[in-house]
Amino acid sequence: MAVRTLREDIPSIFSKDLNYNIYREDITFIDPLNTFQGIDNYCLIFWALRFHGRILFKEICIEVFRVWQPSENSILIRWELQGVPRVPWEARGRFQGTSWYKVDRNGKIYEHKVDNLAFNFPRTMMRPATMLDLVGVGRPTTPNLTFRWDLLEDSFSCPWIELYRAVRGTLEQEGHIPMGVGLEGLVTCS
C-alpha cells in the first residue's frame, strides 16, 4: 500500500496534501542538514513546501523517475523538482534527489531520508540558463548521484535556496528545529 500511495502522492506534492495514513506517528524526516521527528512536524514540512513553493515560483512540480522496493523494509524514489521562479528575468531551475523510506512490519513508514540532492541552477542570478543546464548533460542517471558539496556564500541566493530557507523558517517559528543550524553543505553542481 505504501508504494502505491507514494506513487500517487509525490507527483502532486505541490497541489494537494499527502495521505498520512501510511506514516507512523513517530516518523523521522532526515535531509542533509536536519532531522525532524513526529507526524506533526512531517505534516508541517509538506505544508510549508506547498505554501512557499506557490509564493516563490510561478510553476513548480516534481517528476518521479522511479519508485522501487529494493527490500521488504525499504522504498526508494528518484525524483526531480522543477520550477520557474517569480523573478523579473527568464529563469528555470531544477534539482534531483532520492527519497529513502523505511517501512515497519505493518507496512507503515517510520523514516524518510532525502539524499543525493543535486541542484542545477545558475551560480549568479542574472546568468540565463543554458541548454546544457536545462537538459543536464553529463549528469548521472543512476539513483546513486555523486555531486560536489560547496559552501554557499551568505550573499548567494536563488529561489531554491529561498524555498529551503522559507520552509526552515516556518519550522523554526514553530520551535521544531534547533536554532543556529546554517545552510552549509547544500549540494550544488557547477
Rank of each mutant, 00 (worst) to 15 (best):
P143G: 08
I177L: 10
L171N: 06
I13V: 12
E184A: 10
G138F: 07
N21M: 06
I13F: 01
R105W: 10
C43A: 14
T146R: 15
V187R: 06
I13L: 09
R139G: 01
K108F: 08
L163A: 05
T146D: 12
K16W: 06
E172R: 12
G38C: 03
T98H: 00
D154Y: 07
L49F: 12
D104H: 07
V3D: 04
L49S: 04
Y110I: 02
V87R: 12
Y20K: 05
W68T: 15
V181I: 15
S15F: 04
D104P: 07
N144T: 12
L6H: 02
R86G: 01
V135A: 07
W68M: 04
D17T: 14
W68H: 12
K58Y: 08
A166C: 04
E162F: 05
E8R: 06
I30M: 06
K113L: 05
S155A: 13
N144M: 14
D9K: 03
V3L: 07
G93V: 07
V135I: 14
Y20P: 08
P32H: 04
I177N: 02
K102I: 02
P159M: 09
W100G: 11
D40F: 07
I10M: 00
D40L: 10
Q173I: 09
I30E: 10
V187W: 00
F46G: 06
R7P: 00
E72M: 09
G138S: 12
G180F: 07
G138Y: 11
T98V: 14
H112V: 13
E59L: 05
E153M: 14
L56Q: 03
T188S: 11
I39M: 12
T170Q: 06
L145I: 15
